[in-house]
């Protein structure tokens, strides 16, 4: 969490050091950079960490017994925890987004297009859902928050790595089918959604899909939404089924 905020401040520190003529082109929209940058990676690591501890920590601490012997429906408990984790995630996203906005205002002067701030927030949260759900599922499967953070993190980095590599190869070989394949990766929509929506709303069409921070191309938004929905739903379901149909115990087996 602290890392997120350090990254934000670092980002703006670097921006102020760039040549002024370069900065002028986007200084009115500098606030969006502070929202786009985390969505490339940190946001998802944060989401999967919160997901993992949301589901696994109660077993680790031994407090699961307490909650599961209350007159509480299993579904209410599960929903409560899941929503609780999401609220925490939202608060973090909200805080660093506000931070971006205020720092940008302070450093670069009045910011434009501030009316899309809520959309930026919504996009960030939605795009964080798949890895939140993946963290939740691994936490429930492994019942160790550390281990499940590592495994879910490995899934994320592997996905990003494969995506980057495939895009790179596609660029060199001019092979468009690779680009299509990449869309099945969970990181494709997660990392691409926020920059796509924001650059589109700002009217900045950078038109180099696959390049960092530029998004997936506005034409792919629906596909991205579908990918996010499917990945989130599938892993939420895995987490729920595992939760409902296994013993309440610290051991994973």
């Amino acid at each position: 969490m602290a890392i997120t905020f350090l990254l934000e401040l670092g980002l703006y520190l670097v921006l102020t050091r760039l040549p002024p003529q370069f900065i002028e082109t986007f200084s009115g929209a500098a606030w969006t950079l502070g929202i786009i940058a985390p969505s490339a990676g940190l946001l998802h690591v944060l989401a999967l960490t919160i997901g993992s501890s949301t589901s696994a920590e109660e077993y680790e601490l031994g407090t699961a017994d307490y909650w599961m012997t209350r007159p509480l429906k299993r579904s209410s408990y599960f929903l409560g925890k899941t929503v609780g984790g999401l609220v925490l995630l939202f608060l973090i996203v909200f805080t660093y987004s506000i931070l971006s906005l205020s720092v940008s205002w302070y450093v670069f002067g009045p910011q434009s297009k501030v009316e899309i701030f809520p959309i930026a927030l919504a996009a960030s949260i939605a795009s964080a859902a798949p890895f939140y759900a993946i963290g939740l599922a691994f936490g429930e499967l492994l019942r160790r928050s550390m281990m499940s953070t590592i495994v879910a993190g490995a899934v994320f980095f592997a996905s990003v790595l494969v995506e980057t590599y495939a895009n790179f190869v596609a660029l060199i070989a001019g092979d468009l089918t690779l680009r299509e394949v990449v869309r099945f990766l969970p990181s494709w929509a997660s990392t691409g959604l926020t920059p796509t929506i924001l650059t589109d709303a700002l009217g900045l069409s950078l038109n180099t899909p696959g390049a960092p921070f530029t998004g997936l191309g506005a034409e792919n938004l629906w596909l991205a939404a579908a990918s996010i929905f499917i990945y989130s739903t599938v892993f939420f379901l895995i987490a729920w089924l595992r939760f409902r149909h296994s013993d309440v115990t610290r051991r994973a087996l």
Binding site: D65, M68, T69, R70, P71, L72, R74
Partner: peptide, 13 residues
């Protein structure tokens, strides 16, 4: 029916 049963139980682990 854990929620119904636990309505009637006090448990000390």
């Amino acid at each position: 029916h854990p929620e119904k049963v636990n309505q009637k139980i006090g448990y000390s682990p």
